[in-house]
Amino acid sequence: MEGMTYLAVAYFGMIIAVGLWTYTVVQRSRHLSERMDALEAAVKATSSEVVEE
């Protein structure tokens, strides 16, 4: 049973690590997407100001 406990701890540790890694990657992707949308809006706003002038 000791072997199985040892194995279970290792497995859970790896699952948690993979989960964390997956989560950070997805979060970064979404954060960058929001940043990009904001920048594109700013560029669009700046271009329309120039046109108006």
């Binding site: 997956t22 990657v25 970064r28 992707s29 960058l32």
Partner: peptide, 22 residues
């Protein structure tokens, strides 16, 4: 993971280009 990572890199490059434009 690779598809998401490629998307992230593409975003980073686009953000850099937009910042240079601004």
């Amino acid at each position: 993971h690779m598809l998401t990572s490629m998307r992230i890199t593409s975003f980073e490059q686009r953000i850099e280009a937009l910042q240079i434009q601004l």
